[in-house]
Amino acid sequence: MTESSLIERVANKNVNIYEFVEVVINDENIREEIIKQLLTNNRIMVYYHCYYIISKASEEKPKLFYKYWDDFASLLNHKNSYHRDIGLTIIANLTKVDEKDLFSILYEQYIKHFNDTKFMTAQCFVQNLKKIIKHKSEYIERVVELLLEVENRCNYLQKQKELLKSDIIEVLDEAYQQIKHQNIIEEFIRSQSNSISPKTKKKAKEFLKKHKL
């Protein structure tokens, strides 16, 4: 398959993402080409479909992509918010196999996206924290402390912050059984039971019911 034909297949709106995931996992040459297009191609239908492919493949087989850590980490500072989302997601996937503890170097840069210039990127950041605390339990306390400071850390409109809290609740649920001071999470969740965001209010009530609080 030539580079141009590969790009056109990937760019097709009806591309079979799952088929490409299998190809990328099993063919190193195709894998490298898809990563290259993800990092360098300016066509959204190309780099975003490459993102879908690499995101799923790196969740299934993160070891195959660990050597590209620096390439994906470089996306965290990209001017395009879609690329920042890509970096946040794939780095989170790779923390599962982070034997060199590269995330410790990246941590401060990573958490800056809690207050990204784009609200949707902040949502992407919070959603990916579930993977990070699952793969790196040493960060649970720090992540919980960070998320509980949402009011002071984030400069979004109040209705956006209230919506963001729905994602925060999901991360706190992941952390709840593993944290020493569960009461600080409980207090935060209770305070969201009357949120102006219907989604956040629902998540809070589900959390309280789940944990019999």
Rank of each mutant, 00 (worst) to 15 (best):
Y110I: 08
D85T: 02
H181F: 11
N12L: 12
K61F: 00
T117P: 05
K100Q: 15
I90H: 06
V10C: 06
E99S: 12
E32N: 14
I105N: 06
K159T: 03
N41Y: 04
S58P: 00
L75S: 00
N77A: 09
I17E: 01
V97T: 10
K61M: 08
N80L: 12
V143Q: 05
S74M: 09
R84Q: 06
I140A: 01
Y68M: 08
S197Q: 05
P62Y: 11
I132C: 01
G87T: 09
E187Y: 03
I35V: 11
I189E: 08
L147Y: 03
I44G: 14
C50R: 07
E151S: 13
N194V: 05
Y52F: 12
T200C: 15
K165P: 10
Q192D: 06
I91P: 00
A175C: 13
W69E: 08
N42P: 00
L39S: 01
H135E: 06
Q192E: 15
I17C: 01
R190G: 09
I168N: 08
S4I: 14
Y47M: 09
E59Y: 13
Y51K: 06
K13T: 04
L164T: 07
L208E: 05
E151P: 14
I169A: 12
R153Q: 04
I53K: 06
H211F: 15
S191K: 13
E206C: 05
I133P: 00
E19P: 09
V150G: 03
N194Q: 12
V15L: 13
E108A: 13
T89C: 02
M1E: 07
Y107L: 09
V46S: 11
S81F: 14
K96R: 12
H49N: 15
Y48S: 14
T200H: 14
K165Q: 14
L148D: 02
H211W: 14
F65P: 02
S191Y: 07
L147A: 07
A92Y: 05
E206I: 12
Q177E: 13
E60P: 00
Q158E: 15
F114L: 15
L88H: 01
T121L: 05
I53Y: 07
E206A: 08
E108F: 10
E151D: 15
L208R: 02
Q192F: 04
N152T: 14
D173F: 01
K209G: 08
Y82M: 09
W69P: 08
H135T: 03
K210Y: 14
H113C: 10
Y48M: 06
F125S: 09
S193P: 02
L213R: 00
Y48D: 13
K131E: 04
K79E: 12
S197R: 06
I34C: 06
R31N: 04
V144M: 01
D70I: 01
T40K: 13
K79R: 12
D116E: 08
L106C: 03
A92F: 01
K56C: 00
E170M: 02
F20V: 05
H135Q: 03
E186T: 15
Q192S: 12
R190Q: 15
R31Y: 07
I184L: 00
T117M: 05
Y51R: 04
E28S: 09
S5K: 14
R142N: 14
Y156F: 15
A11I: 02
F114T: 14
I17H: 04
R190Y: 13
L88P: 00
N93T: 09
A122Q: 03
I168Q: 07
M120T: 05
I111V: 11
I140N: 03
K131Q: 03
